[in-house]
Design a protein around this nucleic acid. Sequence first.
RNA 1: UGGGAUAUCGCCAAGCGGUAAGGCACCGGGUUUUGAUCUCGGCAUUCAGAGGUUCAAAUCCUCUUAUCCCAGCCA
Length: 553
Amino acid sequence: MTQVETGPSNFIRNIIDNDLETGKHQSIHTRFPPEPNGHLHIGHAKSICLNFGLAQDYSNALCNLRFDDTNPVKEDADYVAAIEEDVRWLGFEWAGDIHYSSDYFEQLYAYAVELIENDKAYVCELNAEQTREYRGTLTSSGKESPFRNRPIQESLDLFARMRAGEFSEGSMMLRAKIDMASPNMKMRDPVIYRIRFAHHHQTGDKWCIYPMYDFTHCISDAIEGITHSLCTLEFEDHRPLYDWVLANISIACKPRQIEFSRLNLQYTLTSKRKLNALIEENIVAGWDDPRMPTISGMRRRGYPAASIREFSKRIGVTKQENTVELASLEACVRENLEANAPRAMAVIDPVKVIISNYENDKTEQLIAPAHPKDESMGTRTLPFSRELLIDRADFREEANKKYKRLVLGKEVRLRNAYVIKAEDVIKDEAGNITEIHCSYDPETLGKNPSDGRKVKGVIHWVDATSNEAAEFRVYERLFLVENPAAAEDIHQVINPESLVVKQGFVELGLAEAVAEKAYQFEREGYFCADSKDSTPQHLVFNRTVALRDSWGG
RNA sequence: UGGGAUAUCGCCAAGCGGUAAGGCACCGGGUUUUGAUCUCGGCAUUCAGAGGUUCAAAUCCUCUUAUCCCAGCCA
């Protein structure tokens, strides 16, 4: 009976459907190919959900996890572990073992030799600056390297000696022999191997030459039997090269590269480099700072994995440049949490309420449902006594009719408890309210006033003594502008209130709150205990997202 | 006259020659012990623009315009 939740139609699914119908493929095989040089973010989540989602939706389909690790200078094994965890947490499992491009270094080397033997590649000794000059510009063709037509045997010998470590970094490189006059810059004899005396996180010191992306990726795809190799739009110009490499070596499998547009999200940076800068400059606390759009950051913030998957499904897959509104992501988070988060009460900015007509040392144990629509979630017990705490924003000495909370001389409902009426207010010398004296109607527990009085407002509360102290980390968007990537100076657009820390109280039962488990603090928003900093002795709650608020006051 | 791509509602996005899906957002009504949720209703005579083909065009053709990507021994 399990309904397979397939994604909506998109141009890639159309291509796959067609390939299956025409018999080009019997089944499909995708791959998610991160470079282990940083942490995964919401943009990668789109790609993960696309690639693994396709594998889930089509019969006998598979999706590999492959680390594209051809640049040891930038990569690190720590990232490999973090990426694996992020993919798993998102809810996906890869086919078989994890793959690494570095697994194929020996085969890649052999294919490079094959290219040289067929006069399709040569060892070039131009330096970096010369190489750039020889490449030409966007509007003028390049010119051929003086090494382009050196004897095949000579290139073969040099390439072997490059591998043997006889030459210094930058002194030589292997280039594909294609067309220096091509209007496509990528086809102007692209570099396919460079010398790097660097320790590699997987292969150690075995190699001192490393293949470039364009040579590696297509061959890795072919070796793994990938049918559809999905990547982002900026690789469109690389496709002719992808096809060229596979057409000029003796490999049978010819995967098809298909490009789709990357995700841009309002008020969010999706560039590993820029995210890294935020960390380096201590603007955020780390990759998993709840304000980060990283998978680990969103997880710590309290976004359910399923809501990220749903978001990926909703935004679709096209070739159009796009910037998705943050509201769209938040809607997915709220939709999930509305159904799954048990309710609780928390007072974030407390002020004391004294029920003057309530017995001095009496305490009642009130029962409240954990969810207003889901009885299976059970109930919780709320101590209620003479002294309570409510939020400062929920009381005014005077207010117009639109204000539906506690007003001096008026009544309000205490959520899950009684109707109270504000009788008096006590202030300190500075004029700050320190106590609100109220009376309560003992006949209003679980029912409306019998005389027909209408009490419109409902506010939340916590017992003044039977409670748990808690720290609240109230998060807002990290940036003040919709497109922080376009800012000349990122410091100018940082939201100074992206994190506001408050000290308040939560109801008793939350002492055992499990990290990352979502709660709705009624009328405040969705929160979860912080996975790094919250302890039973010092509770710390992250605000995942506020409740929708159509009032605006 | 470098090359490659993209243009459908405020933001995403279906649509593939037969007369504009859906989601988010927004605006109204109802329910509500969360100003939440839920619910009902509204929201493109029009598909970047101009021509053309056709009984019929967002879909085909022509031209124009706008935007994005490409000159790392990064991926």
